[in-house]
Every structure is written in structure tokens, then in C-alpha cells.
């Protein structure tokens, strides 16, 4: 299985662990990801707040390049995924968006016919693999690990091609497949604050606090995410949040691809667990999923 891969800007920076763990996982599952040529930023929420015509043209340019490659386009970042889907949809629905993008693409000799299928790793892993492909590869089932799956907004809003808009559960199913126990909690689709974490920290940190508190009350050992901004907002500001809410205990926040990698027995480089600010290894060792450090021979590499 071969796909066009649209990494987006965050997966090359703070979301590095997502790219590393996702690409290793794909390798282990024989899925080929080919990075899109000369891709540009999707525009996220910011570009569109300043200039709308260019914003759609910017996003559609990536779709046009992917169409040339002729493969499904996989975008792991929630922000990229959502905006690519929306731009594709609006390109077909609104003549103003269409005309503007056509003019823009023409300068590069590109055109977009509207045939690209924008996919998210959750969708691809849940729907494209042959039955039991994932389960048969599990080496270290995540037995006893209580996971709160956090979806946030973009996988199902405003457009939901692969999951339920109001109660998404693809991530639950994938992690259940590899043995994790999924906890039910109320905040799985609430906004993490998005770009507000930098622009209005007090507002965003209040939002992430409510999500983390709900996960904690559901007795989750770890929160799983599928977007670099969600992961960052939920994990990186826990110390700052604790200043206002001392009751919040540190809780590891990982990418679902990292947990799948652990279950498949991939090595430390492949799962990128060393990139965690709130370490996740202690709980994985406690549950007997990762081998105890002390018991490992001294020569074992990390």
C-alpha cells in the first residue's frame, strides 16, 4: 500500500515524535509513505484569518500536487487534515474559491480536478489494513493500560468522513485491538485551545485543564492523541496549569502511534518515547509492558 504523505510543519518540529512513530509504524505494517514534493504549509487557522482567497489557494496547491502523484494523501496533523478536507469541499461548492484557486494554480502549471482522497492515519490504519494485520503483529499487548483517547476537533469537525461527528471512536478501537483498556470520559471531543495556547495562555490552559482533569477522574494512566497541537497543549503546559490548579497530577500524553509502536514491540527510536516531557515509560514498566530497566543486560542500546 502506497500513499502520498503530507507531514505539515509541526511534525518536523515540536511534533517530531509523531512523525517518527508514525513512519516506523507504517514500515512495520508495510505501508509506504512518500513525502509530497515541494509541499507548503496548509495555512491552519491563522492564514485564513488574514486573507481568505489566498488561504484556500494555498491549501489547494497541496491537493493539486497530491493529485499529480495519484495516491491517497495522508495528513497526520489534525489541523492540516481538517483544512485540506475543507478546502477540497469548498473548492467544489463555492465558485469564488474555485476560480481563485484555478488562477493561482495556473501560474505553476498545476490544476486540481478534485479527485484526491484526504486521509488521516486513524482512518488508514483502521480501514485499509487487512483484517487482523495489526492484531497478528502485537508482541507486547498493552494489557492493563488505561487510555483516555483524546480526539479534539479536526478529525470529525466540520467534516467527518470516517468517524462519528459527535462521538468518535476510531482511536478507541485501534488501541483496544492491541490490548489497551479504554476509559470513557466526557471531554474527548472538546477543543484543546489550538493556537490559543501561545496567543492567550490563560484561556487555553483552562481548557486543557478541564480535559486533563476529566481524564484523571476517569482514572486514565495515559492520554492518547492524534494531532501535534493537541499533544503539545495537553502535555507541555502541565507545570503552568499546576500553578493555578495544584490538584492536577502529571499525566503522560502520547501519540496513538507511539502506543501502537510499543504494542508491536518496536524499538525506542521507533516509538520516540524519549521525546516525552511527562515520561510514559514508568507506567509502561509498572504494567509490565516494557521490560524493567534493571533487568536488561548492560549492553542493551536505547
Amino acid at each position: 500500500m502506497k500513499y502520498s504523505y503530507f507531514p505539515g510543519c509541526s511534525l518536523k518540529a515540536t511534533g517530531r515524535a509523531y512523525e517518527e512513530s508514525f513512519l516506523s509504524l507504517c514500515k512495520a505494517l508495510d505501508m509506504e509513505m512518500e513525502e509530497l514534493e515541494n509541499w507548503n504549509c496548509c495555512g491552519a487557522t491563522s492564514f485564513m484569518s488574514v486573507e481568505m482567497g489566498a488561504a484556500y489557494a494555498l491549501t489547494i496547491r497541496n491537493l493539486a500536487i497530491a493529485e499529480k502523484a495519484g495516491l491517497d494523501m495522508v495528513a497526520p496533523c489534525g489541523g492540516c487534515y481538517g483544512i485540506l478536507l475543507k478546502a477540497d469541499h469548498y473548492y467544489k461548492k463555492y465558485p469564488t474559491v474555485h476560480e481563485s484557486a484555478v488562477k493561482s494554480l495556473k501560474t505553476e502549471g498545476l490544476e486540481y480536478k478534485g479527485t484526491v482522497r484526504v486521509r488521516h492515519p486513524l482512518d488508514v490504519l483502521a480501514s485499509d489494513l487487512p483484517p487482523r494485520a495489526l492484531r497478528s503483529k502485537v508482541k507486547k499487548p498493552l494489557k492493563g493500560l488505561k487510555v483516555a483517547c483524546y480526539y479534539g476537533c479536526r478529525f470529525v469537525r466540520p467534516i467527518a468522513p470516517f468517524d462519528d461527528m459527535h462521538n468518535p471512536e476510531t482511536m478507541d478501537l485501534l488501541l483496544k485491538t492491541v490490548g489497551a483498556r479504554i476509559v470513557d470520559y466526557t471531554m474527548k471531543g472538546k477543543c484543546c485551545g489550538g493556537a490559543m495556547s501561545g496567543a492567550m495562555p490563560n484561556v487555553a490552559q483552562e481548557m486543557t485543564y478541564l480535559i486533563l482533569r476529566a481524564a484523571e477522574r476517569a482514572e486514565a494512566d495515559v492520554v492518547a492523541t492524534a494531532c501535534p497541537l493537541c499533544q503539545f497543549n495537553l502535555e507541555a503546559y502541565q507545570d503552568e496549569i499546576r500553578a493555578a490548579h495544584p490538584d492536577l497530577k502529571p499525566i503522560p500524553v502520547v501519540y496513538f502511534t507511539q502506543l501502537l509502536g510499543v504494542a508491536l514491540g518496536l524499538d525506542a527510536t521507533a516509538t520516540a518515547l524519549n521525546r516525552q516531557i511527562v515520561p510514559v515509560e514508568p507506567i509502561l514498566r509498572e504494567k509490565g509492558i516494557l521490560a524493567d530497566e534493571k533487568k536488561q543486560p548492560a549492553t542493551a542500546g536505547v
Binding site: M52, G53, Y56, A57, T96, V97, A101, K103, S104
Partner: peptide, 9 residues
């Protein structure tokens, strides 16, 4: 490319 997009706003 972006210079040639319309200002639909």
C-alpha cells in the same frame, strides 16, 4: 501563485 489568487474577502 498566491499573488494571483482572488481577494474573495
Amino acid at each position: 501563485a498566491l499573488d494571483h489568487a482572488d481577494r474573495i474577502d
